[in-house]
């Protein structure tokens, strides 16, 4: 378990992380969301022992990050933002260095490096120096270094930032495949990623906790939750808006569609369906939305960053 208690970090000018408290249980994949400058990276830097908190503390599997820094760090695999590495080293040499730091020697060292290399598919570039690698490969080297000792806690700061869609998919697959029985914290801007791999989402803004729940719960906060989007001929807006539980109607000019919004807690799909059937509208497309995470994100963090 990771326990964050009243964690606060002040820099000279501003408060980056402001009295943050929450717990993360074994097996959870936590998506850490927030606009740029919200304090995500600063929080991660404190959890990994890079920065000392101004006040408050956190513990990693029972090890306090300030008193038992080394023991806490032994539990963690960390991918810092931008995946910094030693550019002049070769991939193999770099991973061997990490393996030695993690306490592996001889055959065990070799096995660990091989395993990590296979997991992120680095075989082709093993003998290249890291600075000559493409962005995607560099990120994978960073990931390999983080997972090499099979840590119980994995902290990844924007692991898919700057990768192409195929690489993103690959990284997500990797994270999902190793996440069992671990605690994984992922910071990201990409909201689809949260829905795809996270079991829990925490939104922060200006260093404060804004929302905490499963991706589904967050989506349910959206005004598009349970909204019905229709594409068709001769739709009667006034009839739709008169239906029970309808909060309003949005017209999307570009897609030539109508979105019928539901009042909070209401389910409007049956009514809309009946109306379509009774009026005999030619509806070519009909979608019930779960909610839009990006819209929830904007609502939560609006005005937080100027």
């Amino acid at each position: 378990m990771i326990e964050i208690r009243n964690l606060t970090k002040r820099f000279a000018q501003h408060t980056a992380v402001d009295d943050l408290s929450f717990r993360i249980q074994q097996g959870e994949v936590l998506g850490f969301l927030g606009p740029n400058g919200a304090g995500k990276s600063t929080t991660m830097k404190m959890l990994t022992g890079f920065l000392a908190p101004t006040s408050g503390t956190a513990s990693i599997l029972g090890f306090d990050i300030q008193k038992d820094t080394l023991k806490a760090q032994q539990q963690i695999g960390y991918l810092p933002e931008g995946a910094p590495c030693y550019g002049d080293m070769r991939v193999r040499g770099f991973l061997e260095f990490i393996a030695e730091v993690r306490g592996f020697r001889g055959a065990e060292r070799k096995r660990r490096v091989e395993q990590a290399v296979a997991q992120v598919e680095l075989e082709k570039v093993l003998d290249q120096s890291i600075e000559t690698l493409s962005k995607g490969f560099k990120r994978r080297v960073g990931l390999a270094q983080a997972i090499l000792h099979d840590p119980r806690v994995l902290i990844l700061d924007e692991p898919t930032d700057g990768l192409d869609p195929n690489q993103k998919h690959q990284v997500r697959k990797l994270i999902s495949s190793i996440a069992a029985d671990k605690i994984v914290i992922i910071s990201t801007h990409i909201l689809e990623e949260v829905t795809a791999i996270c079991s829990r989402a925490v939104v922060i803004g200006s260093g404060k906790l804004l929302a905490d729940g499963t991706p589904l719960e967050l989506e349910a906060r959206s005004r598009y939750h349970q909204a019905v989007t229709l594409v068709g001929e001769g739709l009667d807006e006034s009839a739709l808006s008169a239906l029970n539980g309808v909060a309003g109607i949005e017209r999307n000019e570009r897609e030539h569609s109508l979105t019928v919004l539901a009042q909070p807690g209401a389910v409007i799909y049956p009514q809309v369906g009946e109306l379509i059937a009774s009026r005999g509208w030619a509806v070519s497309e009909l979608n019930v939305e779960r909610g839009r995470l990006d819209e929830v994100f904007r609502t939560l963090t609006r005005g937080e960053v100027v």
Binding site: K45, T48, G49, F50, L70, K71, Q73, Q74, I76, Y78, P80, G82, P84, C85, Y86, G87, I98, V101, R102, Q145
Partner: peptide
């Protein structure tokens, strides 16, 4: 400059 200090300082090294 390269940011690798963050890696070095978050490894279990005093």
């Amino acid at each position: 400059k390269s940011g690798s200090i963050e890696l070095l300082m978050t490894l279990p090294i005093t």
